Computed example of a mutant assay.
Amino acid sequence: MYQGMNRTHLFLLMSVIGLSGCARRAANTSTADAATHTPAPTASDRGNAAQPTPDDTEQALAALNAAPIYFPLDSSLLPSEATDELSRIAQALRQRSLAKVTVAGHTCELGTTEYNIALGQRRAASVRAYLVNLGVEPGRISVISYGEERPADANTPEKNRRAEFSFRLAEQARAGEL
């Protein structure tokens, strides 16, 4: 099925499939989510709300820096040394209710493209599950897999087997800044 496709086309196809799956899951909100969901501010509310200054935004994001989580070869199980970093990230996210995070799963070049996309997805999902278990709301954590497509160091495969974090604030996401 994939023989006529090059790696870039296959990566794009897998990304579209993954994103469409995420969109379907997001549309299915549970009654628990509905009960805790706060309505979006109206146009009149937005005029009265204090807007964060650029300095506040930069400070909030600076506090959310995170080191990558490195995984063993062919594994999506969280290494024990990752728990302290993930606990720190979870605490920072719980203290900043407007912050959201994307966890990107990566792999080294070993294995097929399809396998690496799936492994990167499992790595990102295991990080997400751990953060949710520590009290971060699931809706604030997105996952994506880049497989082997974005190596951190082409000469050091161990550095490519990782999950990385990118943080943004809700205001920035609504304004299209991040």
Rank of each mutant, 00 (worst) to 15 (best):
I69R: 02
A50I: 14
Q51M: 10
L19E: 14
N65T: 15
P68C: 02
E137N: 14
N65I: 10
A40Q: 11
G135V: 05
R7P: 10
A118E: 09
L10I: 04
Q121D: 15
L13W: 08
T57C: 09
S20M: 10
S76I: 05
L77M: 11
H37C: 10
A32Y: 06
T42A: 06
G176W: 06
Q51G: 08
N6Y: 06
N6T: 08
Q91W: 03
A90E: 05
Y130V: 04
G120I: 02
L64W: 00
A60F: 00
L78I: 04
A49E: 13
E81D: 15
G135T: 02
A124P: 03
N65W: 09
L134G: 01
I89G: 01
G105N: 08
P54A: 09
A66G: 10
N116D: 07
A104N: 10
A173H: 08
Q3I: 12
L86K: 01
S75P: 07
G47F: 10
G47H: 12
K159F: 11
A27E: 13
A99F: 00
A50Y: 09
T36L: 11
N160R: 05
A66P: 08
A67G: 14
N160H: 06
A163W: 01
K100W: 08
A66K: 06
A40F: 07
A104G: 10
D56S: 12
L61H: 06
G111Q: 02
V16R: 13
S145H: 01
P39Q: 14
T31S: 15
E158M: 05
A99K: 00
A173L: 11
A32W: 08
H37Q: 13
Q51R: 13
T42G: 09
P79V: 05
P39S: 14
G139A: 09
T38V: 13
R162Y: 05
A163G: 05
S80N: 11
H9D: 15
V103M: 03
F71I: 02
G176M: 08
A40G: 09
A125E: 12
L178H: 12
E158K: 07
R25M: 12
I17G: 10
E164Y: 04
I69P: 02
D45G: 01
A154W: 07
A99I: 00
I141P: 01
S145D: 00
V132F: 00
R150C: 04
H9T: 12
P79T: 05
T8R: 15
A129G: 05
L169F: 03
V143N: 08
V127W: 00
V136Q: 00
R174I: 14
L19C: 10
V136C: 03
Q91G: 06
Q59D: 15
H37I: 10
P157D: 02
A27P: 08
T38R: 13
L73C: 07
R88P: 03
T113V: 08
R128K: 12
Q95W: 05
R88C: 06
T156I: 13
L86V: 00
P151W: 03
L178R: 13
R7E: 15
G47D: 14
R46E: 13
T29L: 09
A129F: 00
